[in-house]
Nucleic acid binder design. Structure first.
Length: 592
RNA sequence: GGGGGCGUAGCUCAGCUGGUUAGAGUGCUUGCCUGUCACGCAAGAGGUCGCGGGUUCGAUACCCGUCGUCCCCGCCA
């Protein structure tokens, strides 16, 4: 596209343009003033192009070039020429050609930048404060470009499969469960608040009631929780819902989408992906998002410990807990201090203690728990672990939840520390058959693992009233290299089952009516069986560009304190604005 | 809410066991330089050592507090 100020992009110009006139516009990337001749690299989004000012060729242009400084915005027009053979720069796409401009226009000047653009070591704090400059960096440009390509691939895939892209409200109703809401006060309605959506969940289900059948949205979601490297208060989900589907339909659709999204990032993966049940994932890897690029699988020794004289472990099993173990190869030589560190690590992960058996290189075997075990029991453990000289087997006894959590983290820790993870792999899998509920100690009731609209497994519907802990759900997560890319479920489309599900969560009739009446009503008017999935776009892109933080794939992210260091949001507002919103602060901000 | 790391020039950092004039690289400014591409050479400007308090004859350094920032746990249906 030819623009008024610019007829070519920098890297569009190639040797075919030699002898032709071009007009480039962009930023001054570098000025190399050799005294009698000045070289300037012009940068636009496409890349770099060298222009040369020689007083013998054009004294007026040379004079103007002496004014140029880094990041000035300029327009140059001139004929493209081949560089002398010995001055070709192979690092540059346009390194065989250059321009001696016949005219130069300074479109805008720039003061000295707060940091050097090609310096990789600049702190994130500075980068975020001047994000508009940070975005000029090649790395950020390529991250945002790849994000665009991935979104484009996703849109193409869904459009080609007959989906409609539909927007849902950002001003909506506070949701009862889940994350904390961002609230938006209503000026029109004194004392009332909208909430920003944590996800378009309810609306996309109502679109199914509305007969849309196949919906998607690149949806902004908001959660007022503490941040992490991979969590922002506002983030983007690829939100999808389909009617007349069972689990395999959604999974097949999503696999095609992930394959296309990865291809857009230059990564070839093949569908179908592996599938693990939630139970298998927990028992083998201690995680519902297992990284299966390496082994170190957990194994069960509850039966052995229950038969031992080791009271601490025995009693755990008798109370319904479990004792599981993990074999870590080649660390039997750990010093006393290293073992103390390992034990402290286990405790920091939530273990009450840590037991182990060390298989020393000299063939001897040592353990603080041998006195509680018979030789047969010791042999059986070695057999299950397939322990060799140099290995250590660690044991944790507690509730299933704690044991899996501790050993799962142990596994990741040692996988990383021992360099067992093949970073070149692209390990994609589904975790299916999640439990529908989990018990919340804090609230002393069962809460949804996924959300309250998740369909129970057909064979478990009876258990909604009798055995909540063992109700499986038709919910599935897609996992990439040990990271949750997304998850979804088949939804309840039967008002009767939905009511049972709400009751199982301990919601009273009144609460159900207040919070979900519109939804229950909607479902009375003919609701297709439906289900869907949501994929975390920021995390997906961050993983594919191997960024340390999703902030690196978001143009204007918040920092870890949920502040925008560039705009200083969130900020105080005027008393007048508050009054209009009928809001009185408990602690007024300091006068400024 | 809890734990840990960091805070010294515009940027990235060094600074010994507490010692008198706080350094380097880079960026910036100026001068010289006609084929550079991390141009080179030279000179110069640039500091509330985050802030407050304490210990001390003396604190950038030690202690306490506080603020900022990053990571992790909790939390994130």
């Amino acid at each position: 596209m030819e623009l008024s100020y610019k007829k070519q992009n920098c890297t569009q110009v190639n040797e075919e343009y030699i002898g032709k006139e071009c007009t480039l516009a962009g930023w001054v990337s570098t000025v190399r003033d050799l005294g009698g001749i000045i070289f300037v690299e012009v940068r636009d989004r496409s890349g770099l192009f060298q222009v040369v000012a020689d007083p013998k060729v054009n004294p007026q242009v040379y004079e103007k070039f002496q004014e140029l400084r880094s990041e000035f915005v300029i327009q140059v027009t001139g004929t493209i020429s081949k560089r002398p053979d010995d001055t070709i720069n192979e690092k540059l796409k346009t390194g065989t050609i250059e321009m001696y401009p016949s005219s130069i226009e300074i479109l805008s000047r720039a003061i000295a930048l707060p940091f050097v653009l090609d310096d990789e070591g600049v702190s994130e704090e500075v980068r975020l404060k001047y994000r508009y400059l940070d975005i000029r960096r090649e790395k950020m440009l390529s991250n945002l470009t790849l994000r665009h390509k991935i979104v484009t691939a996703i849109r193409n895939y869904l459009n080609n499969n007959d989906f409609l892209e539909i927007e849902t409200p950002n001003l909506t109703k506070a949701t009862p469960e889940g994350a904390r809401d961002y609230l938006v006060p209503s000026r029109v309605h004194d004392g009332k608040f909208y909430a920003l959506p944590q996800s378009p969940q309810i609306f996309k289900q109502l679109l199914m009631v509305g007969g849309i059948e196949k919906y998607y949205q690149i949806a902004r979601c908001f959660r007022d929780e503490d941040l992490r490297a991979d969590r922002q208060p506002e983030f983007t989900q690829v939100d999808i819902e389909m009617s007349f589907v069972k689990q395999d339909d959604v999974i097949n659709m999503a696999e095609g989408l992930v394959v296309d999204a990865f291809r857009a990032a230059g990564v070839d993966v093949k569908a179908p992906f592996k599938r693990l049940t939630w139970k298998e994932a927990m028992e083998r890897y201690g995680s519902d998002k297992p990284d299966t690029r390496f082994g170190l699988e957990l194994f069960d020794v509850s039966d052995i410990m229950a038969a031992s004289t080791f009271e601490a472990f025995k009693s755990v099993v008798e109370k319904g807990g479990t004792v599981r173990a993990i074999k870590i190869p080649g660390i039997a030589g750990y010093s006393r201090k290293e073992m103390d560190d390992v034990r402290n690590l286990a405790i920091s992960f939530g273990a009450k203690g840590l037991a182990w058996i060390t298989y020393l290189e000299d063939g001897s075997v040592k353990s603080p728990v041998f006195k509680f075990l018979t030789q047969e029991q010791i042999d059986e453990i070695q057999k299950r672990a397939d322990a060799q000289k140099g290995d250590i087997v660690f044991f944790v006894a507690d509730t299933h939840k704690v044991v899996f959590d501790v050993l799962g983290r142990f596994r990741l820790y040692f996988g990383d520390r021992l360099g067992l993870i093949d970073k070149s792999q692209h390990d994609l899998l589904w975790v299916v058959d999640f439990p529908l509920f989990e018990y919340s100690e804090e609230e002393d009731r069962y809460v949804s693992v996924h959300h309250p609209f998740t369909m129970p497994a057909y064979e478990d519907i009876d258990k909604l009233e009798t055995d909540k802990a063992h109700v499986k759900s038709i919910a599935y997560d897609v996992v990439y290299n040990g990271n949750e890319l997304g998850g979804g479920s088949i939804r309840i489309h039967d008002p009767g089952i939905q009511e049972k599900a709400f009751k199982a969560l301990g919601l009273s009739d009144e609460e159900i009516k207040n919070k979900f009446e519109f939804m229950i009503n909607a479902f009375k008017y003919g609701t297709p069986p439906h289900g869907g999935i949501a994929l975390g776009l920021d995390r997906l892109v961050a993983l594919l560009v191997r960024a340390n933080s999703i902030r690196d794939v978001i143009a204007f992210p918040k920092n870890a304190q949920a502040k925008c260091v560039m705009t200083q949001a969130p900020s105080d507002v005027s008393e007048a604005q508050l009054r209009e919103l009928h809001i009185k602060l408990r602690n007024l901000p300091k006068i400024h």
